[in-house]
Computed example of a mutant assay.
Amino acid sequence: PVSSSLYGSRFLTGRLGGSITHRCFYTPTPANKHERKYWCKMAASGVCYTIISSSSHALSEYRGRVALGDAPQDGTFTVTMAGLRSSDAGTYRCGIGSTNDGLYVSLNLTVLPDATMARPTQLIRGELHGSVTVLCPSGDTQGDKKRFWCKVGRSSCALIASSDGYVDRRHQGRILITPQESSGAFRVLINALKKEDSGLYLCGTQGLRGQDSPQEVVLQVATASTIPRRPKFFSGTVGGSLSFQCHHDPKGTYEKKYVCRWEGGSCPVLLDDEGFVLESYKGRIQISSSDPERGTYAVVLRQLREEDAGWYWCGASSGHAELTAPLKLLIHKG
């Protein structure tokens, strides 16, 4: 039986005479890998007529201008339609199954005389309890627009985090939108990944005149994880001290390992393994021991204060990617 989830873009725009390429992402279970993949177009009668599938040739009027390619090892299949006509506009389904009513995603194709090409959808894979780094290209190099990350639902995109400090309740302590680089690009860091984080997202910038063309991102969280569930809560007493362990991949190479204080969607670094300590924490925080072979280092925070309570991240930088994990400190009065 076909199982689990299927993701793909909900809207496509193509240029008259041009072509579109649409990617459908599915969970690469053995059943899904071998099942029929299809691309069909909805008729007014409510029937979805197969245009092409992995088990049949293209419908005669589309022959020579439509192709379907399946990459089961990646959990994706791609449909390309060329020589677009205005009559190609309409509602399509990309799906998996022996009929056209099984597992599918519906999308609308608009065909315009002069359309700009959208960026291809990014596929990001993460592991349960692990972390991911999403690179969001942006046309905005001024840096004065709001950066956002939202999850696409049936009718709208639910805001999860934005650069003005908003973070939705379910993502407290586990998402961060970085400042923009000179190119206008920024990154979204998400950790403590859950199965329900899988889905289709948009990231981009939003000015007074609305959104610039956002980047579509499909996040797939693999449930077979090598990352153990680690303690997230640590408690201490005012005036006392507490210690916690940070973990990273012992086989990985990292330019920097650090601890930062997460608050309202930003995370200023408190200390790193190159000797930096934030001025207001000098004499109170240090890396007490490090075991690179096991991929761990211990951090001690002394002279605890009530205001130390809250979220912290352990981080390790590797190129554009950040390996991060959250923890929360609970501080009791003596």
Rank of each mutant, 00 (worst) to 15 (best):
L189F: 12
D101K: 12
T76P: 09
G126A: 08
Q245D: 14
R85K: 06
R154L: 15
T223W: 08
E293Q: 08
L128G: 05
T237Q: 09
C150Q: 06
R23P: 08
V277F: 02
A58H: 01
T324M: 10
P137Q: 14
D212G: 08
S235T: 13
S106W: 07
V105F: 06
I160S: 02
D114P: 11
P326K: 14
T121S: 15
S87Q: 03
A115Y: 13
V105I: 10
Y62S: 00
G83S: 14
Q211D: 05
L242M: 15
R36N: 02
Q220F: 11
D144S: 05
D291P: 03
A321L: 13
V79K: 05
Y7G: 09
Y166D: 00
K328T: 13
Q215A: 08
I51M: 02
T205D: 04
G334N: 15
C48R: 07
G18F: 15
G8T: 04
C157H: 02
C203K: 04
Q206P: 05
L301W: 15
I20D: 02
V188A: 01
D101F: 11
Y49I: 01
S53K: 00
F77V: 05
G153R: 11
R65K: 11
T226E: 10
G8F: 03
G64P: 01
P250I: 03
N108K: 04
L103H: 07
M42N: 11
Y201T: 07
A321I: 11
Y166P: 00
L107I: 01
P179M: 04
Y49W: 09
G165N: 05
R305A: 09
H332C: 09
S106V: 07
G14C: 08
K257C: 14
A44C: 04
Y258A: 07
K151I: 07
G275R: 00
T110C: 03
L270E: 03
P250T: 01
P72R: 00
D273M: 06
T226S: 15
V188E: 04
V218L: 13
Q303C: 12
V188L: 10
P214V: 06
A316G: 13
I96G: 01
E196T: 12
L16A: 09
T76R: 09
G264Y: 03
L208N: 07
D197M: 07
L327N: 15
L219W: 11
G165L: 01
G165R: 05
